[in-house]
Write a protein that binds this DNA or RNA. Structure first.
Lengths: 347, 347
DNA sequence: CTGAAAGCGCTTACAG
DNA sequence: CTGAAAGCGCTTACAG
């Protein structure tokens, strides 16, 4: 019995075919081997004659064949999936997502997906605990994890796991095996304070997560920039520790009044939004009595009254840098993007 | 030569092992077959003795084994990945994501991921064109696609492809093969208009995407609810067509003044935010001269001055309903969630 | 209760 | 230039 006969028998036995055509279906239809189809699909044109390739591609179209990427990934290829991990989204205690979520993360996700897709990547999104995210990344065979804004957190399991490639985004900790993308935070702080000084403010307050003298996390770096700007002209500066939320800004308003400051550097637009509202409630005018700088340059800067002057962190560039490092990892690489100042009404 | 000897030879030949342990590695370490490991991993405890299971689990821990879900999915299992498709995120012409993105989508994504994860699903996120998304879903073997807010768009390739399970979110088109989750839009419109009427407004304007008499898309349904509320008390109502953005709201302000209305129903908080700012520029007070209702009850409702009274669409419940339908598909099912009214300052 | 075998859909050397 | 074979990591009947 010849090979051909055997094959035909096989074919007839499987009358009821799975809905989704496979590479084998295409191969049969085109009268070639699965290997040939694979070659054509992967652009290895030297391996197949032009006419066969043509025939194969026609069958691909005809059958509506779509490659199963999971199967392809199994043979040692990259999965072309990346995961965005945002640990700070939830209250770590309760893991509850109920309360105000900084709209910055939505922006980031959307921008990142756009850039990733243009390069042929799919983005998954994960907000669980660290230990679980290690499991997740391994299970799903992610090409890389983009770790967003972890500050004092340790992520030893993630960072040390040799099977996981990471790109640290807005994270101060240096991981020698991984890539890093961040804004020049000192410059951001400097630009912010400088504006307040330029418009004649002399009693400044920094409002945001606590800056630490011996840390290089985001708020600490920003504060450093603020201090630098102040020292240049001998202006007074203090710091008020609050969390990153609208309510925190609201709360800060009373302090601002008590301390009789005339200019505030915040570390987030949503803090600024809360502060502006809080000050209004206390009968203070912005920027008249107190000038306020935001940070991130989110759309909400336009929505508040007065509109928020802010620092744009160059998200577009940062997202490109992230994908560059995903595609061409450079262990220990640090990409630092310069922020710019966007003036509106609040300062 | 015995089987055992052969196996040992094999083992020694692969001294340099892949970093990530496989089911076979675990099997070898535990001295059982891969099948046994698989059974234990999948909780088929009847197939394996308790002592063997124990031994296997120990090795799993010891080796740090993590299952490759892609491989598992290959054997006909579900991938436990879902994709959130948001076609309306970009300008369909340019596919450019630059300009204002409604923060609602960020909220939705984050909530959905939370709910999905708690049920063991991973969420991917996709904003490409329809044709490409079909390809994407098939390639990635997604269990389901959550189609967010498509209105006049046709998605024939997506909806008709038998290989793709969809859950339509806030989409008016009825797809008999798929599940649907939406808000009771008529009620939302009704609640919004009712509030304006309650506070004595008699010249109302509906501001949002154009409502159509013969359509049951989101704005049309909301408008219907608005009209119903107005007819009950003989109040005048007109409609102004704008896109969903802050700038559109800003633009609408002049019209609102020209038309001398005293109450506005918008279809989105960001429209309301723009409108409020636009009215302020024109020297009108909100809610004094014009009362304004938002829609979605986003965090930004707190940030504006005055704060926006809005309609909460019950996102939490909706997200649960979506996942219910992902797990237990009911072709043609429609889950309708009732919205609630949240009063602040703007109305 | 346990193991060997076949298969999921793809890719990659390796012979012809 | 083309095809048969082995393998990726897992699961599932099917014999023992």
């Amino acid at each position: 019995m010849s090979e051909t006969e055997l094959k035909e028998t096989d074919a007839t036995q499987r009358e009821t075919r799975a809905r989704k055509p496979t590479i084998t279906d295409v191969a049969k239809a085109a009268g070639v081997s699965a290997a040939a189809v694979s070659y054509v699909l992967n652009g290895r044109l030297t391996e197949v004659s032009a006419s066969t390739a043509e025939r194969i591609l026609e069958k691909v179209r005809e059958l509506g064949y779509v490659k199963n990427l999971a199967a392809a990934a199994l043979t040692g290829q990259r999965s072309r999936m990346i995961a965005v991990i945002i640990p700070s989204l939830y209250d770590p205690q309760t893991m509850d997502a109920e309360p105000p979520i900084n709209p910055f993360y939505g922006q980031l996700l959307i921008r990142l997906e756009h850039e990733a897709r243009s390069r042929g990547y799919t983005v998954c999104f994960y907000t669980g605990r660290e230990e679980e995210s290690v499991q997740f990344l391994l299970q799903r065979n992610m090409d890389a994890a983009v770790l967003v804004g972890f500050s004092e957190w340790d992520l030893p399991n993630l960072l040390k796991n040799p099977g996981i490639r990471c790109v640290l985004f807005d994270s101060h900790k240096h991981a020698p095996e991984h890539g890093h993308v961040r804004t020049n935070e000192q410059k951001g702080g400097y630009l912010s304070a400088e504006r307040l000084i330029d418009i004649g403010r002399r009693r400044l307050l920094f409002v945001g997560p606590r800056p630490l003298p011996d840390s290089d996390n985001v708020p600490s770096e920003r504060y450093r920039g603020v201090v630098r700007a102040c020292e240049l002209v001998g202006v007074n500066i203090e710091a008020l520790e609050v969390s990153v939320s609208y309510d925190a800004g609201l709360y800060a308003a009373q302090k601002v009044v008590d301390m009789a400051v005339d200019g505030v550097v915040t570390t987030a637009d949503i803090i600024a939004a809360g502060l502006i509202d809080g000050l209004a409630r206390l009968g203070r005018s912005v920027p008249g009595d107190v000038a306020v700088m935001g940070y991130d340059n989110l759309p909400i800067c336009q929505y508040t009254r007065p509109q928020i002057s802010s620092i744009d962190q160059g998200l577009r560039e940062k997202v490109q840098a992230v994908m560059d490092l995903v595609e061409n990892p450079e262990p220990g690489a640090v990409r630092i993007i310069d922020p710019t100042r966007v003036l509106r009404q609040s300062a």
